[in-house]
């Protein structure tokens, strides 16, 4: 009797170890560098940015209200953005409203990129100094924000968008958004 109790007491290290292993196992399949956005549930921060094609045209946060949409952060110096561009065009073809934010880039290069590769964006913001990027907590391009019709950020996807990820996880999320 006393011995059983002792065995139970001395099994504690084993149990703790197994709990740790459970988390280690789960951890193997999540990328520790993918961070959740700190802005989920919050409106898109205030900003004023120029249109990428037209210096005189300015936008502010009100463009994110009225319908659900994606905000795609990209740059010409980002190789992964190149890889995902085709898929963005496909999404645009499916009547998904995408706003582009060109992040810390050169206007000329960006325009050439959009002309050559086709422009999937309904509106293209030009964030040369990364001001909106900072407020959005952007830490690497590409990133895609899911914004509902009230202008509230619901999700952030880090890394490229592609057909597989879209079908597996993101389409449902997008369709579920108001």
């Amino acid at each position: 009797m006393a011995n059983t109790r002792k065995i139970i007491a001395l099994s504690v290290p084993l149990l703790l170890f197994l709990v740790v292993c459970f988390f280690l196992f789960k951890g193997l399949y999540t990328d520790p560098r993918k961070l959740d956005s700190a802005l989920i549930g919050q409106p898109v921060p205030e900003f004023t940015l120029q249109d990428i094609y037209d210096e005189n045209k300015q936008y502010d946060a009100s463009i994110f209200k009225g319908k659900k949409m994606l905000l795609n952060v990209w740059a010409t110096w980002c190789p992964t953005c190149y890889a995902e561009h085709k898929f963005l065009n496909q999404l645009a073809g499916q009547d998904i409203y995408i706003v582009g934010m060109n992040y810390k880039d050169e206007r000329k290069k960006a325009i050439r990129w959009l002309t050559d590769l086709k422009d999937p964006y309904k509106i293209s913001l030009f964030d040369k100094d990364g001001m909106l990027g900072m407020d959005l907590g952007v830490y690497g391009a590409p990133e895609t924000f899911f914004i509902d019709s009230k202008g509230i950020i619901q999700y952030r996807h880090v890394g490229d968008l592609n057909a597989r990820i879209w079908e597996d996880e993101l389409a449902e999320l997008y369709n579920g958004m108001q």
């Binding site: 961070l35 959740d36 956005s37 700190a38 802005l39 900072m134 407020d135 907590g137 830490y139």
Partner: peptide, 8 residues
């Protein structure tokens, strides 16, 4: 910084 990038 936390407001933008989270507790990370």
């Amino acid at each position: 910084m936390v407001a933008r990038f989270g507790n990370f």
